[in-house]
Amino acid sequence: MSVRRLAEEQPASFEFTPENLAWVNKQIAKYPEGRQASAVIPLLWQAQKQHNYWLPKPAIEKVAEILDMPYIRVLEIATFYTMFNLEPVGRYFIQMCGTTPCMLRGSDDIKAVLQRRVGDQRKVSADGNFAWLEVECLGACCNAPMVQINDDYYEDLSAENFEKLLDDLAAGRPVKVGSQTGRRTSEPAGKLTTLTSLYGEDGRSGPASDKTQA
């Protein structure tokens, strides 16, 4: 972690889109009258999503005005939580997990790819597509190594498929969220190693007993 400050260059203004404003009002309505400040984190989050995944100063002030809070109170929150990006992060913000399980499963290769293709951490790539950051565990250890790009997880990475994933994103081709090796969620890679008598050798066909009866 390092000192978190607002970006040097800031947009002139920030307004929620009509859809987001409706969403914002729904969040505020969850809290009793006079306690609307409780909605500050969802609002900042939505503002960040709307604004290319980073929070500009006008957005912080806008949220403060909507919630009737002093600016400094909202700035405190925006600088406290690392999930709020205070500087531009490109079209795709890559958070690479480097914690022990991912590291054991080869996150160093992923890191090398990022270092080579995107450059240093916290710097937006020359084409404006990517910025990356090594973060602590994102809780998808069973599919390590993994990265989070904007809102989605991409798992079971290797240097090759990660390189391809970045190519596809840069070219605007559709990509698959989740495991990049084709397994579903966090099912065992390859085939079942336990409960084979219940779920069959292929691991997909349901209890083995049903199969034999049929």
Partner: peptide, 20 residues
């Protein structure tokens, strides 16, 4: 009653300041 000051950042990087 003016809420001028605040603590930005966290942990070792916490700093006391006014808004900007």
């Amino acid at each position: 009653g003016t809420a001028d000051m605040g603590a930005i950042g966290r942990g070792e990087d916490m700093e006391i300041t006014t808004y900007l």
